[in-house]
Design a protein around this nucleic acid. Structure first.
Length: 210
DNA sequence: TGCCAGGCCCTCTTTAGGGCCTT
């Protein structure tokens, strides 16, 4: 397996942002980053830091995340945290639930400090939409419940959500290996699966099987 | 004052509209 072009899907950084809103283009900023480094299917490192966006967060965000203005008052600024986080992710492949959201914030925050990422993104939500077409919906919490993945009951905090996303990701990889006979599962295959029309998913899985 | 995300994906589609998902 080519280390650069065909990386294994079980060695990734799974990340999750809590933010002041939905769009960095509208001035929203990150307020917390959580991530786990997964190597060969095992969590080997964790990253979690609050960061001060430089303005007060709304009561909605405080209520939604449990992160308050007083918690952020003495937190380091976004740039300082993101510089450390960029070192944490290195050139690893990246995974997030609804990756288009987290990739926008990651790239916007890195741009603020003149850094970039090299790792490609995959989206656990898009893969889950293909694999679990009978799930009631594809919210992270619903999928965790659907797959009976144990949790500590914490939701909408960055590290907890990244841990749950990592567990969901590994469950999907295990099903692709065990039930569909695809081994090894490469990161590019997961990206391809996430972009395959739902009706064509069975044929893709069949072709990829041993 | 009024407006305000963006990408994916389905369908009563493709010269479009609206729900889902993330905070």
């Amino acid at each position: 397996m080519d280390a650069q072009t065909d990386r294994p899907a079980d060695t990734v950084v799974v990340l999750d942002f809590e933010t002041t809103g939905l769009s960095p283009n509208q001035g929203d900023r990150a307020i917390e980053i959580g991530a786990v480094l997964v190597e060969q299917g095992k969590v080997v490192a964790r990253f979690q830091e609050l960061m001060n966006p430089g303005f007060r967060i709304s009561s909605f965000i405080a209520s939604y995340t449990g992160i308050t203005n007083s918690m952020l008052r003495n937190a380091p600024p976004c740039g300082e945290v993101m510089d450390r986080f960029a070192d944490f992710i290195g050139d690893h492949a990246l995974v997030a639930h609804n990756a288009s959201f987290d990739s926008r914030f990651l790239d916007a925050e890195l741009q603020q400090i003149g850094r970039t990422r090299s790792g490609a993104f995959a989206c656990s939500m898009l893969v889950a939409r293909r694999l679990y077409q009978t799930a009631p919906n594809h919210k992270l919490g619903s999928l965790v419940e659907f797959k009976r993945i144990p949790t500590d009951g914490v939701f909408h905090r960055a590290l907890a959500d990244s841990e749950m996303t990592a567990k969901l990701w590994l469950v999907m990889l295990e099903e692709l290996r065990g039930e569909h006979g695809i081994d090894p599962v490469s990161f590019p295959f997961m990206q391809k699966l996430s972009r395959t029309a739902k009706g064509a998913v069975p044929r893709l899985l069949e072709r990829a099987a041993r």
